[in-house]
Design a protein around this nucleic acid. Structure first.
Length: 270
DNA sequence: CCGCCGCCCTGCTTGC
DNA sequence: TGCAAGCAGGGCGGCG
C-alpha cells in the first residue's frame, strides 16, 4: 500500500515524465474515481492543461496545472499511477487515462477502486486536515513531544493518524516502532522523553531509507515506470509473523491495534 | 476535541 | 477439488 516513501518515489518518477506536457485527452472509465468542484466537468477541465510541477503531501501526489488548479491523487491501498509510452499495452484496471502531447499516457489504475483523483481549485485548501510532514524541518523531537502530550490512544494509532503526522501508514508505523524499541500498544502520552527521541529518529530514518530503496512492494505497489521497490526485502517486522526478531531472536507477533494488523517483537519493544 | 467503529471494494486465504 | 465465507486496509463520515 502506497505510503509516504512509495508516493515520493512515484512523484519523482512522474516529474521528468509529465512536467511541461499538455493533456490532450482525458478518458474516464469509472466516474466515481474522478472528483471535481461543483459544476466543473473533470475531463473537460483537464483537457488542454499543462503540468507545471509534481509534489507530494502526505500520501497524496499533487500535480500542479498551468491554470493554478491541481490534480490530487490518493492511491489508498491498490492505486497505481503509471506513465506508458505509445504501443505499450493499457495498464490493467485503468480508471482514468490522461493522454499527453508527447504521445505518452498517464494511467490511474486501482483494482479495489478506493483511490481518488481530485481536481482542486487554485484557491482551494484541500489539505487542511493533514498534519506535519515527517521529513520537513519542522518535525523536531520537541514537536513530537508536544503532539504526544496527553494522548491516551496507542502510539501505533497515533502514528497512523494523518491529522498529526502525514504520510505514515501501516508498514512504516510498525517498522518505526520496532526500530525505536517501543511497544505499539503503549499510550502515546505515556512515552518518556528518551523513547520519544528514539521514535522521532526512527520515523525519519525508516522513511528516508525506504525512499532510498524506492518503497516497499507488498501487494500492488509499483512506481511511475511500473517497477517494484526494494524495501520489502529489509522489513524488520511488517508481515514477518513467527519469524525471529533480528535484534533479540524472539518470534515476531501480530496483534490488531486501531483495526490494523500490527507486527512487533514482545522481546525488545517495551 | 477525541477516540472508536463501520463502510467502501476485490483478490487472496481459509475451511469445510 | 470446489465453493463460500472471511479477511485485509486508508480515509471518511457518523456516533458518543
Amino acid at each position: 500500500m502506497p505510503e509516504l516513501p512509495e508516493v515520493e518515489t512515484i512523484v519523482r518518477g512522474l516529474r521528468p515524465a509529465i512536467v511541461g506536457r499538455t493533456i490532450t485527452h482525458v478518458d474516464i472509465h469509472l466516474k466515481k474515481i474522478a472528483i471535481a468542484p461543483p459544476r466543473i466537468a473533470f475531463a473537460r477541465a483537464l483537457q488542454g492543461e499543462v503540468f507545471t510541477a509534481v509534489d507530494r503531501r502526505g500520501k497524496y501526489a499533487v500535480a500542479r496545472l498551468g491554470s493554478g488548479r491541481a490534480l490530487v491523487t490518493s492511491l489508498r491501498m491498490t492505486g497505481r499511477l503509471v506513465v506508458q509510452a505509445p504501443g505499450e499495452p493499457e495498464l490493467p484496471g485503468t480508471h482514468i487515462r490522461l493522454s499527453l502531447d508527447d504521445g505518452n499516457r498517464l494511467h490511474f489504475a486501482d483494482v479495489r477502486t478506493f483511490g481518488r483523483m481530485r481536481l482542486v481549485e487554485a484557491a482551494e485548501t484541500w489539505d487542511a486536515d493533514l498534519g506535519i510532514e515527517p521529513l520537513s524541518a519542522g518535525f523536531t523531537p520537541e514537536a513530537l513531544i508536544g503532539m504526544l502530550n496527553g494522548r491516551t490512544t496507542p502510539v501505533k494509532a497515533f502514528l497512523l493518524d494523518q491529522r498529526r503526522i502525514a504520510g505514515i501508514g501501516n508498514i512504516y508505523a510498525s517498522e518505526a516502532l520496532w526500530q525505536a524499541r517501543i511497544r505499539p500498544e503503549k499510550p502515546a502520552g505515556a512515552l518518556g522523553t528518551p523513547a520519544i527521541r528514539r521514535l522521532h529518529a526512527a520515523i525519519v530514518d525508516v522513511l528516508a531509507r525506504a525512499i532510498e530503496m524506492r518503497g516497499s512492494s507488498i501487494d500492488d505497489y509499483v512506481d511511475a515506470e511500473g517497477l517494484q521497490g526494494g524495501f520489502q526485502n529489509v522489513l524488520a517486522v511488517y508481515g514477518r509473523l513467527g519469524q525471529p526478531c533480528s535484534r533479540c531472536g524472539r518470534a515476531i507477533v501480530r496483534t490488531v491495534i486501531a483495526q490494523r494488523g500490527t507486527w512487533w517483537c514482545r522481546g525488545c519493544q517495551r
